[in-house]
Design a protein around this nucleic acid. Structure first.
Length: 280
DNA sequence: TTCCAGGTGCATA
DNA sequence: TATGCACATGGA
């Protein structure tokens, strides 16, 4: 995959390593809209419109360098996929969702989003986060920015209940009093295990949510978030094992520095393919 | 109606 | 350390 930036438009040529549907619908991000054939994705106070062309994509935005980093354009995904394909279990998932790229998302936004995600379904996560943006985020004209910590500090727990967060309202109320953006940024100096320990003590952040923040926020690829789908996958294709912590340890050990990528291919595949078959 | 969704916190032993 | 349960909400 190659790309060029001209007048704030990112031109991507080649579709093998970039498929906007795979990237946005694989479950790593909740703030985006499908507008006809196009996608609009929101991050912090910014947005980008992604339009498919004959040989690739055009990404239109007012901050191309932000989205160059956001879409992880400098990483060679074909190399990663070739390595991971050697594992039989990943062949199907990589053929299915080969256009995935792991997004580099805002730390505070990722923290809040994945606290909301706990024991929840993606449709409702999107609904709750949309209501959060609309009621607290800065009006940017055609959309609302993700709220700042300061704006969230002004609200009480009832507010988070009212936007539908359910019992996670209390987690949200507490967590924004435990950390700020600067502290989250400082944590980036730590190695993954130490950083994980810092996150896991936060309200509403357990092992799984911490791993998602590590992967999608901090860009740490040596983690393997184990949710209900991954647990199902492990029990079906590897061995029956109830303990999610043990599943996590085994998968991290197996995939090492590529664990995060492997996880995302598997999650997307399980949820959209195997998942639907089980329902029909 | 019951089950489930990108689980976590807390009490108990 | 490990196990069990409660926790909102909406879709299938």
């Amino acid at each position: 995959m190659k790309y060029k930036i001209v007048n704030n438009v990112i031109n991507i040529s080649g579709k093998e390593d970039f498929n906007i549907k795979d990237i946005l619908e694989c479950g790593q991000i909740f703030s985006f809209d499908k507008q006809g054939d196009d996608y609009v994705v929101y991050s912090r106070d910014k947005c980008a419109k992604v339009v498919e062309s004959e040989d690739g994509y055009k990404i239109m935005t007012n901050d191309s360098s932000y989205f160059e980093n956001f879409f992880d354009l400098k990483t060679d995904y074909s190399k990663i996929k070739n390595t991971l394909k050697k594992e039989p279990i990943l062949k199907g998932p990589i053929e299915f969702g080969g256009g995935i790229r792991i997004l580099k998302q805002d730390l505070f936004e990722t923290l809040i989003s994945f606290i909301v995600s706990a024991n929840n379904n993606i449709k409702r996560i999107q609904l709750i986060l949309n209501r959060l943006r609309k009621s607290l985020g800065k009006d940017m004209g055609t959309y609302h920015a993700f709220p700042t910590r300061e704006s969230m500090l002004k609200k009480d727990e009832t507010f988070f209940k009212d936007i539908g967060a359910g019992y996670r309202a209390g987690y949200l109320y507490k967590v924004i009093r435990q950390v700020d953006e600067e502290k989250l940024k400082e944590y980036d100096n730590l190695k993954t295990p130490e950083l994980r320990n810092k996150l896991i003590v936060l309200s509403g952040v357990g092992p799984k949510v911490a791993d998602c923040i590590l992967l999608f926020g901090y860009g740490r690829k040596d983690v393997f978030p184990v949710d209900t789908w991954i647990a199902k996958m492990y029990n079906k294709y590897y061995e029956p094992l109830e303990n999610r912590e043990k599943i996590r340890e085994k998968l991290v050990e197996k995939f090492g520095n590529l664990a995060g990528y492997a996880q995302q291919y598997l999650f997307y595949f399980m949820r959209s393919f195997v998942g639907n078959n089980e329902h029909s």
